[in-house]
């Protein structure tokens, strides 16, 4: 027997084994990484679920307080106000007592309006009754002219009712963004736009204020950005901040198809 086939066959057999070892190690790593990715995804999903549950509990509590304020304290204030009005009818006008009661009636009215406003923020009944688009339009109308800022709303596409959890989250994010713009941006104009497409809902809040550095703000605490981020994460929405010296734009994209598939 010639030695050449032995040499060639032996060498190729060992080379094949070397290739097999390398391929096995690479394949094994791919599997390990895929497995870890799967675990990571599950952990992220669990975290999101936890966040959702926390936000839901918070939302329920806010809703309960809002309803209590509106139905219980609001009614009691009306009752006190009616008693004051009754008292006013029984005393002479233009006296000190009448002036005190008149003042008390006005103060009660102001308190009632304040409580109504707080209760509507805590429990946006417009959202449940007429949907996100209407609730946002209403809040923009209510806030328009506040501190001299022009606040406008625009609906693009046809409104479609979505899950309450998604609508309330988008509503809260929009409110937080408008609130931030009013408080920190020195803007004279705020625009809220909601786009409805077959695939997603895109909410955009822009202002013509002096902008901010998002990365700097994220490091600090107590500035609603973290709150906005965690709310967006809870519903699996994509959040984008664009800021320059000529203004800020916050975009939140909520994917409809993905949610339906879940």
């Amino acid at each position: 027997m010639s030695i050449l086939p032995v040499l060639i066959f032996g060498t190729f057999a060992l080379l094949f084994m070397a290739v097999a070892v390398i391929s096995f190690v690479m394949f094994y790593q791919r599997r390990v990484i895929a497995h870890q990715l799967q675990i990571q995804q599950k952990e992220e999903e669990m975290q999101r679920e936890l966040l959702r549950a926390t936000l839901k509990a918070q939302e329920d509590e806010m809703q309960r307080i809002g309803k209590d304020l509106h139905d219980d304290i609001g009614l009691k204030l009306i009752s006190v106000k009616n008693k004051v009005i009754g008292g006013l009818m029984n005393i002479k006008k233009e006296t000190d007592e009448a002036n005190y009661l008149e003042q008390a009636k006005n103060d009660l009215e102001a308190i009632r309006n304040e409580i109504r406003s707080i209760s509507h923020t805590l429990y946006p009944s417009a959202l449940d009754l007429n949907g996100l688009s209407f609730a946002l339009e209403k809040i923009c109308k209510d806030l328009n002219g506040y501190e001299g800022i022009k606040i406008s709303f625009r609906l693009v596409g046809e409104y479609k009712k979505e899950k309450r959890e998604a609508e309330i989250t988008l509503y809260r994010i929009a409110l937080e963004c408008i609130n931030n713009a009013i408080k920190h941006s020195c803007a004279t104009e705020i625009n809220a736009t909601i786009h409805y497409t077959a695939q997603n809902i895109l909410l955009e809040i822009s202002d013509n204020g002096n902008g901010f550095d998002a990365s700097d703000l994220m490091k600090q605490s107590g500035l609603g950005l973290k709150n906005i981020q965690s709310r967006a994460k809870a519903i699996g929405a994509e959040l984008k901040f664009e800021s320059s010296k000529s203004g800020t734009k916050v975009s939140i994209k909520y994917f409809l198809l993905e949610q339906k598939n879940q």
Partner: peptide, 28 residues
């Protein structure tokens, strides 16, 4: 790994190739 595994057979048959099969030694 490629070098050491690929040349084991060559070195194992080195003397046989060199002495008995000088023509094949070239292939090795």
């Amino acid at each position: 790994l490629f070098y050491y595994s690929g040349s084991i057979f060559y070195f194992a048959l080195h003397d046989t190739l060199f002495i008995d099969y000088p023509a094949i030694s070239k292939n090795g």
